[in-house]
Design a binder for these strands. Structure first.
Lengths: 145, 145
DNA sequence: CTGTATTCATACTATAATACTATGAATTAA
DNA sequence: TTAATTCATAGTATTATAGTATGAATACAG
């Protein structure tokens, strides 16, 4: 029942961008230094986030990335689902094409669906703002990680 | 965020054993025929369940397995945690030895802990009896799968 | 006491997913 | 024109998953 590193790192990237939002673009090099994640791996993550419209990017010198919206407008669930595809605990819940032919009579499907629901409800209950607030509470103005 | 086949199959094994509970031991061969899981793979699953005290087993001719308790005395969470180890969404929640040194200042840890909590609360809200009842509702007396 | 059916124990293996790394092109600003 | 960046794609090493294989131990039936 693990979240992949991409999902976890994406959350840290988004928090980092929110905290270091000066209106300028933030280079991956800087995020890398603060978060201890290689630039190359970050590239994969921000590409996915960018294609999903969660980030704005700028190439070239002084280029980088910044949030496309205000922190309170991102549900954590949207960030995680963007990276993970979905959060379904079993394959047969991943879209109708994976729904197995025995679905009608499957006694555990309802149970798994319920689990999927509580997970999604939870991650959608929080916004990026909530995690940023929590981070600033922990670090005060000295935040550098 | 997937549950492994062992976790999913274990649930089906337990439901199968509950439904076919005549007081006798049920051979893996029979469960295999009904569930479409090889005897060899079932052996691994029931061994884990047995060591955790969820099943009683008997070797030799006419041997097999049966539930150690009444269906209503098994929380689904106990069955799943037995097979999966735990249901933690991130490694740092898997026991104190994995708690990372930055835990104190980690702003996402609380979020992940909350997710872990809602998952465990959900799976502990149901008992094996609930899934058996659901299965019998779907199949009536013709249950053979 | 022998044969057969079963669990129990352990080791092995194939496939897939994860977690990266590598190479180089395209773009932008100074 | 140069340097710094993102963008695109491919490659790889490690780990986890999902099984299979071999054979010993046990129990009952005859």
């Amino acid at each position: 029942m693990k979240i992949s590193t991409k999902g976890r790192y994406a959350l840290r990237v988004m928090i980092d961008l929110a905290i270091h939002d000066t209106g300028e673009y933030v280079a991956l090099k800087d995020i890398s230094a603060r978060q201890g994640i290689t630039v190359k791996y970050l590239e994969q993550i921000v590409t996915t986030l960018g294609k999903a419209g969660l980030l704005r990017s700028m190439r070239g010198n002084n280029g980088g990335h910044r949030l496309a919206k205000k922190p309170e407008e991102y549900r954590i669930g949207d960030i995680l689902r963007t990276m993970e595809g979905d959060l379904a605990p079993v394959e047969c819940l991943q879209g109708d094409e994976n729904l197995c032919p025995k679905a009608e009579e499957c006694s555990t499907l309802k149970f798994w669906k319920g689990l999927d629901d509580v997970v999604n409800e939870y991650v959608d209950k929080f916004t990026l703002r909530d995690l940023v607030t929590e981070t600033e509470k922990n670090f005060g103005n000295d935040y550098s990680i």
